[in-house]
């Protein structure tokens, strides 16, 4: 299968000296839906930021076979669509239309193409007709959908989402899960919502303290209570 993202032995520390990732390796193939799970502060978001070159690490991350470097950043960002956790950070324009058009405009689409792709992206996330609305006046569930649309409009090869269901009520959460299920695109989803992982992702990777501690079939990983408990993903039962 074609490799969309390959990460080889990635280590990263923040400028304040705090180590965030150490020796992370993983491969994302076309058509996969992968869950990236782990406790708070495990380095999930930091890893996602490496996927499209927001954080740099020359040569360690490869997208569609090409090493990510300063020169091909724009190309990489067109291929790897990154959806941030807080839609108030992701949606920064006065109207929904402007926000979804932002990516396509940066990619150099002309006006007709932009209008077409904005309408399409809104349709994909079930938010047709929201073009003129102001992001501030939307509900959180609606904002999350629009945030996904802003990235889908760039027609990426892989959708990378950070905590798509955080803070959502169960109704909005399940409708978002259904929505993601319906999108025929390679997906990497960082989350510690195990219901979502089970419903959506055949493969799961556990990240803890900046290291990959498990990578395999979701059914096996979620069945391993001891593994989950050891990495903050299940209740710690007292021994005996």
């Amino acid at each position: 299968m074609e490799e969309i993202i390959r990460v080889d032995n990635l280590s990263f520390g923040y400028p304040d000296g705090q180590p965030a990732l150490s020796g992370v390796s993983l491969v994302v193939h076309r058509g996969e839906t992968i869950a990236l799970i782990g406790p708070n502060g495990a380095g999930k978001s930091t890893l996602l930021l490496h996927f499209n070159g927001i954080l740099h690490s020359d040569g360690v991350v490869r997208v569609l076979g090409k090493a990510v470097n300063e020169k091909n950043l724009k190309w990489v960002r067109g291929k790897v669509g990154l959806v941030f956790q807080n839609p108030d950070d992701q949606l920064f324009s006065p109207t929904v239309f402007d926000d979804i058009a932002f990516g396509p405009l940066n990619m150099g689409y002309d006006e007709a193409q932009v209008r077409e792709v904005v309408a399409k992206a809104l349709g994909w996330v079930g938010m047709g007709g929201y073009e003129k609305r102001s992001p501030h006046h939307l509900s959180l569930g609606e904002k999350k959908r629009i945030a996904i649309a802003t990235v889908l409009a760039m027609n990426p090869e892989v959708l990378v989402i950070d905590e798509p269901t955080s803070n959502l009520d169960p109704g909005s959460k399940w409708s978002l899960i259904e929505l993601l299920k319906g999108l025929a695109i390679t997906k990497v989803i960082a989350s510690h919502d195990l219901e979502l992982v089970q419903a959506l992702c055949p493969r799961a990777i556990i990240l803890d303290r900046g290291e990959v501690v498990a990578d395999g079939a979701t059914s096996q990983i979620l069945a391993d209570e001891r593994l989950l408990a050891a990495h903050g993903l299940a209740r710690n039962k007292p021994a005996g």
């Binding site: 990154l82 950070d89 932002f102 990516g103 940066n106």
Partner: peptide, 13 residues
């Protein structure tokens, strides 16, 4: 900073 990262992620240069 996060907004700027979100802008860069969508090809802002």
């Amino acid at each position: 900073e996060r907004v700027y990262a979100a802008m860069m992620a969508r090809g802002f240069d």
